[in-house]
Amino acid sequence: MYIAVINYNMGNISSVKNAFKRIGANVRVTSNARVISNAKALVLPGVGAYKDAYKNLKKLNLIKVLKENIRKKIFLGICLGMQLLFEYSLENGKNKGLGILKGSVEKIPQFVKVPHMGWNQLKILKRNSKILSGIKEGDNFYFVHSYYIIPGSKYVVSSTTDYGIEIAASIEHDNIYGFQFHPEKSSTGGLRLLENFWNIVKEKG
């Protein structure tokens, strides 16, 4: 049983891998369709531009594999990896995403400093969320992003953060999870979230 961390050349894969290793999870970093299909869970990390991310997934022939597998498996998208779940992004023109969830990705309005970078507090909306277990209202997580999601349904949002505007910090829909912040860079709180994810994977496995 392992988690496939999808490598599509969009930055900082090693931090995600190291963080999962630290909490004792079995991870395989891969861009191989078969390794992805055989995984119990998928993690799509990502730092960089939306358009490039989609293009890279396409070049690696991973679009179809992801669309087929995300709903079937336990999925975690981190930052750009979460944003890719939605229908499109307005980053540098309108760019298509995976369209697993309804909604879009838009630029953080310029009346605040962009990128939104640093430690910010969570306001927890889904109190019984398994992946947020052990996390307290007001705990800090590390954010770095210039675009944010506008989900079609507000019910997917499990926590938010306040940056002058309200930003969805985490999402949850059936077996699909997403974090706008970086758990792999959020010290003990972040590691706890990854551990929760691994526990969910083990429970269902």
Binding site: S15, N18, R22, K185, S186, S187
Partner: peptide, 8 residues
């Protein structure tokens, strides 16, 4: 550092 440090 990436192996042991989990802050930026």
């Amino acid at each position: 550092t990436a192996e042991k440090v989990f802050i930026p």
